[in-house]
Amino acid sequence: MNYRSSFFILTCIGLGFAFLYIPILSMVVFSFNASKLVTVWDGANSPTLKWYYALLHNEEVLDAAWISLKVAVINASGSVILGTLAGFGLARFSQFRGRFTLNAMTTAPLVMPEVITGLSLLLLFVALEELIGWPAGRGITTMTIAHMTFSMAYVTVIVNSRMASFDTALEEAAMDLGARPLKVFFVITLPIIFPAILSGWLLAFTLSWDDLVISSFTSGPGSSTLPMVVFSKVRLGVSPEINVLATITLGVVSTMVVGVSLWMARRAKLDAL
């Protein structure tokens, strides 16, 4: 009864989604195009997988992807730990010294322009190196630290909002039945907020995998990530291989996002029983 939409709203939704998806779909279509002229469809020789072949034999891209993957995995795992602790703390302890600061510090990175975060972290690393000799030079370590700093803010927000709807009676029941606080956390709390933590991990992974600006500031020679390689290629002009990369990324991401959503929907349904 309350699900009403006027013709106007339906049109807006249609146009809006067309706007969001036409660019993405055009990349997918042209990734199978034989012509090197990216946007001119070569009907005679298409569709073809030749750019897929080219991409998967491009050493530079593969190396960069490997570095990106390492950084993204370490970053995701690290930020999940830090973000869960912060999110849990913010949700559970309403009063502690520095709550306001922590809250501000976890909100600010969400909106902070990347150039500022990148520049400031780089200057910190330079100053630290001068002061204590660590980190020696810039590379995967500095990049990972930088990524964790902004990723954990996202994880914190996710965990915090999940904790807001957490029924504390569950924990009290467990304690009433004889479980010690630490045991309660691992046996009750953690499994219940696990979907939030998983989303946090995936988000942190993606943020790191996609980041260009902060990586550019904090990486060193020989540690170019995939976005950095893509950026330099794109600056030189369009390349069919990028279409392929986009298509693969889109395939992986949509499979993952849809899969996780379905899993969570099922879980939510089971929980509701």
Partner: peptide, 24 residues
């Protein structure tokens, strides 16, 4: 479904999505 469709581009690389507009 619509929400998922809004979120999906957000999970795909910004760089690649901007690149798509060059082609367009």
């Amino acid at each position: 479904v619509l929400l998922l469709l809004v979120i999906l581009p957000f999970w795909t690389s910004l760089l690649l999505r901007v690149y798509a507009w060059i082609g367009l």
